[in-house]
Design a binder for these strands. Structure first.
Lengths: 226, 226
DNA sequence: GCAAAAGTGTTGTCGTTACACCCATGC
DNA sequence: GCATGGGTGTAACGACAACACTTTTGC
């Protein structure tokens, strides 16, 4: 499943199912693994087929599996979900193929509050994936995957605030991420002062080479009091 | 797979395969999932059948999966490994059933140095599992699973030292684990001074109710200098 | 100048490190 | 007493939360 930040909240890419069971209901994009294909390969193929999104550039991360015997009315089906974290992408075209139509972004909060929106046990799978994402923000550099190529530290902070649902202290966050090795690198550019933005222009950064943070970003990192 | 600490080093329970392919070679215990059975249920069943070990009391934790198309000469086979952490158990009886014979403990270091000892890609699976165990020591209370019902803090420290392969400062380790909430609880007993042990008798503890450590045990926790 | 947002300085607090030291036991 | 291992005290250090402050822009 693909997560992104849109309108300040965590959203997930879902499709309307075009076939039974659960025809017309929303579900996470996916499908059956072909012969001679790994789960990861199948995930990329189905993502492209159902949503038009080319996951070629996105790292897909396997997250557990679901093998309860009664989780699909068609019989014993094991699901291997993958988590991808993407910047705010344009809504992909509907491909109207046999499996799904109308790929769209939806806030995870909505889907997790009303678990009946998603078919199968996909609400549970989404919930687990969000937990994984929340934890990975702590000790990996995955947050930069939510951002475009170049981003400001404030935008990076907005990622943490959206996923964790709290407000962080600008000052301490700024220092922490700048001091973390291989997390972000200055590009030398600054945010173009277009469209009447006020205030001092922010330096632009891109993702560094590191995958893991030496010292984790704390959930309590300078959350303001009032 | 079942990990334990024996003779001061991390060891794993393996079996000699009784059937082709890789007949006579060592492998992690396991087998095929029956119809209407989850991977976890199959793991417990195979563990009992092949090694005589009743995993009923041991928590089995699923760790990833292996689905490369060429990992088994018989064809496309997906493996769902489980990690169990156990105290130093007596070597289980050989059950000599069709699948395996001669269950035995072997140091993980040996099996990881010479990857050809284990059949299939089991050396890789073991390596991944050891990494998981190493990390879980940091932020969970899993270390107590390596210990018997009652244990001393020194024994708990020996677990960390064996799995991490370094020496920790007794004093700081002692304080850290005693302060961690729900990690260990005093039983009121002390180590019976049998078998000519010297020194002050150690208090005995049992595992607390917690699963996660609020502040992680650091890899660098007071490793002595010289 | 004023507002807004970026970015820096500073202080108190708290956890950890690196030891030195004390305690309880067997011999 | 002495060796041995269990357990506690403590000063120096470092990271960080909290918040005040300075800088750079648009209007």
């Amino acid at each position: 499943m693909v997560l992104t930040i849109r309108e300040g909240v965590l959203q997930v890419l879902i499709v309307k199912r075009g076939t039974e069971p659960y025809r017309g209901r929303y579900a996470l994009p996916g499908g059956f693994i072909h012969h001679g294909e790994t789960a990861a390969e199948a995930a990329r193929r189905e993502l492209l087929e159902e949503t038009g999104l080319d996951g070629g550039s996105l790292p897909l991360e396997p997250i557990s599996y679901y093998d309860a015997v009664d989780r699909d009315p068609r019989g014993r089906i094991v699901t291997f979900p993958f988590l991808a974290v993407a910047p705010d992408l344009p809504i992909p075209h509907s491909h109207c193929d046999s499996d799904a139509w109308a790929a769209t972004w939806k806030p995870t909060a909505t889907l997790l509050t009303d678990e009946s929106i998603l078919a199968f046990d996909h609400a549970q799978i989404l919930a687990d994936a969000v937990t994984v994402a929340r934890n990975k923000l702590r000790y990996t550099t995955i947050a930069t995957n939510f951002c475009p190529e170049e981003f400001t530290i404030s935008e990076l902070r907005a990622v943490y605030e959206a996923v964790w649902g709290l407000e962080l202290d600008r000052a301490n966050f700024h220092r922490k991420v700048k001091n973390a090795t291989e997390f972000i690198v200055e590009t030398g550019n600054v945010r173009p002062g277009a469209e009447g933005r006020l205030g001092r222009p922010a330096k632009l950064y891109r993702a560094g080479d590191g995958d893991e943070l030496s010292s984790p970003i704390l959930l309590t990192l300078s959350a303001r009091r009032d």
